[in-house]
Design a protein around this nucleic acid. Structure first.
Lengths: 352, 352
DNA sequence: ATGAAAGCGCTAACAA
DNA sequence: TTGTTAGCGCTTTCAT
């Protein structure tokens, strides 16, 4: 067909010709094959360097039919650091390994997710880090068996290692904390149980209720898809029940909830004790600073990236381990003793 | 070499054989070439669909030697929504076009940036969206000429369209706002002028000073690389000068500054008027809510994605237009009249 | 230890 | 309108 296009770039053939050796040897030298005379290998590498050679990753990956040129990162949402910041951090870490990260957003849509997974596989990604959509298709799970996968934040019950925040313990602690402060009428705003992390957090809340000797009826619950919008609306609804404490199980929900609480003019912690969930650096800025189930996104990202890279190395699959990152219950000014006199209602005057 | 590996996937050859036609026709039909009998094309597409065919993107891009299979997204930092959320949003938008986005983080390191750009080009990206590092290498700029580029947030003076926040106007307004409140001793914390956006913001501040009839000496300035850490430290330093108002020119800087202000126990706006910069949803949660130069990251992402896609279509380069997204100066409770009596110093007792 | 050559899966000349 | 065939740039088998 002839030179389709050739931006004056150097390729292995050029190097081979210039060095008077074969392309095979060039390739071997550049890939650190032991079957090359070290001195020759050195010479090849130097020449490649001098000529500014950079291997075409497409050709390399296509030819090898498996390489770590690309990995895919699949997340449902963009508007929370739990996803976007973790994605960026993973990209940073993976690039140290020479691996490029393709980022795709499913918008929590199972069909879209399926298409994106297919396209990712069509790019011959070496592996995937995935936060599955809430109602992931079986077909998608099937696709996830064909390549090393690490599950992040959410599990979809496939045989693959995962990195999650260890929320059960933290949520239970949270309930105990509120109960110890005298709260009996608590509201919980979390994510649906169809979401693995929603289920885990709810389990924690239930365990806390039990341990605190509370009645399950004392806790009003609302489980919604994790968006700021939903968090805002659900909080307004929950507040109608006049709980004395509100705990949130989700980062986006927390932001929405905080706005709703402020909108209603509730004073923290006098009118309401509030426990947020997620990235601490923001909530600390609130006044009073919010008691927070603080998740280390940094640790999550690091673990996920390491896990995937390790996975890419092994030819023999190791068991699918689950890695739990313990969040911290950071006590701050938004939680306090239940105020027995004033069942929060009217924004009630000044603090002084 | 033989069948190197062949996970039972269908390829064009399979389709061609099964339909009794040539691979070329299959390819043409699948790519919507007009030179195929419509009825045949239809039959090919249906068969491909039925067989679950998904084109190998590597092979396709390698063969075509130019395609929109991949684009690169290059940013310096991960810890601010200005980068990570915008990256994720762009990935979302680009995927609608069937384009996969490779995300890389330069850590604001010119050498790393250069290596990453080379590797991105080695992946034959169709285009790039780039937030250049502070001291980008000339060699990197050179690389950026070989492919359609959109500059985001920061410009590095190359011939390429850009999408920026129109900060000059907003920063000037901001100074005027503070001056109108009676502030004469203002501090400005921004990013270095080596950064295009740092230069723009500073220009805005200067213009505001002029318009407000202030003296340049009235404004203490500190220009640092935009990290929360730096913002925190620089704010502590600036506060020693006892300004009555502090304005910030950067998102990460604002978070660091807010923490520093809180740490010092300053009451807003009594002890200090504070203007933050960046994503409004957080700063609104502060107490009092922070007056903010609110940037629409959504609009930035949309514009950048659209611009790049448009760029990929054109064969004839259109002029490198600059797109300015106007931020809004959102007045809130953190700015107020200068308190002439009390030159902020000791955290001074209770508000009541 | 090295070279020759056959592909990886696709697209695009060129011919018919 | 369709088929034949030569690559895209690299890796890897097989032979030496």
């Amino acid at each position: 067909m002839g030179a389709r296009t050739r931006r004056g770039e150097v390729g292995v053939v050029d190097l081979a010709r210039e060095l008077g050796i074969s392309t095979a040897t060039v390739s071997r030298a550049l890939n650190g094959s032991s079957a090359v005379r070290p001195e020759l290998a050195q010479r090849v590498r130097e020449h490649a360097e001098a000529r500014g050679y950079v291997a075409n990753r497409l050709a390399r990956a296509l030819s090898a039919n498996t390489s770590r040129a690309f990995v895919g990162f699949v997340i449902p949402y963009v508007d929370t650091p739990a996803y976007s910041a973790v994605a960026a951090e993973c990209a940073r870490l993976l690039s140290r390994d020479g691996t490029q990260m393709i980022l795709t957003i499913t918008e929590n849509d199972p069909e879209l997710e399926h298409r994106q997974l297919r396209e990712l596989l069509a790019s011959r990604v070496a592996g995937l880090i995935v936060s599955p959509s809430t109602h992931i298709l079986d077909a998608s799970k099937q696709l996830l068996t064909s390549v090393p996968v690490v599950q992040l934040h959410r599990s979809c019950g496939i045989e693959a290692p995962g990195v999650f925040s260890d929320d059960e313990q933290a949520m239970a602690e949270c309930v105990l904390h509120l109960a110890a402060l005298g709260h009996r009428h608590i509201a919980y705003l979390g994510t649906p149980v169809a979401l693995s992390n929603g289920a885990v957090r709810l389990r924690g809340v239930r365990r806390g209720i039990e341990l605190a000797g509370l009645n399950e009826d004392d806790v009003t619950m609302s489980l919604v898809e994790p968006t700021q919008q939903n968090g805002h609306q659900a909080t307004l609804d929950l507040l109608r029940e006049k709980p004395t404490a509100l705990m949130i199980g989700g980062g986006s929900l927390s932001v929405g909830a905080a706005h709703a609480v402020r909108e209603r003019g509730l004073r923290l912690p006098d009118d309401l004790s509030l426990v947020a969930y997620g990235d601490p650096s923001w909530f600390a800025l609130s006044e009073p600073p919010l008691t927070t189930v603080a998740v280390s996104y940094q640790a999550l990202a690091e673990t996920a990236a390491e896990l995937l890279l390790a996975r890419l190395d092994e030819r023999h699959r190791s068991p699918a381990t689950t890695h739990l990152i313990p969040p911290q219950l950071r006590l701050a000014g938004s939680t306090g003793p239940r105020n027995p006199g004033e069942h929060n209602g009217v924004p009630g005057g000044n603090a002084c």
